[in-house]
Amino acid sequence: MSDMMDDMDEGGEGVVKKFMFVNRKAPHGTIYALEGLEVVLVSAAFDQDVSLVFVDDGVYELIKGVNTKGIEVKDFSKTYRALEGYDVEKLYVEKSSMDARGLTEEDLIVDVTVLDSTEMANLMAEQDVVISY
């Protein structure tokens, strides 16, 4: 075991990094969105500075009126509304991704900050850890 592993065993208590989770995929069709939410909740439990970004088909993760009965999978869209309870309050959506899909903020189940591509790039550049799926 290296010194690094000894450090890791201590769990990095007290260190707060900027974690960004980049949601790029539709909520259903693949498992990325669902499993991705699990990491978000764990990182919040580690008291990290968490941001969520929704781009490309990822914006569909936040739309209202989801009904998954027909495809027989769990509807986890309510989890996004519960994020506030985990102190995950920084949600960003890319404007051009919404525009391309004919969506506006009115179509979303949570309050978000809408950014253009340049603002999004700047926000990403500020992060310590970016996890994308």
Binding site: M8, V15, K17, F19, V39, V42, F46, Q48, I131, Y133
Partner: peptide
């Protein structure tokens, strides 16, 4: 182990590099 191990790696390492789609 749990997802905490991933978050911990993000905290402890200088870089976290992801490989996937």
């Amino acid at each position: 182990s749990g997802l905490g191990q991933l978050v911990e790696a993000g905290i402890q390492c200088d870089r976290l590099v992801t490989f996937g789609d």
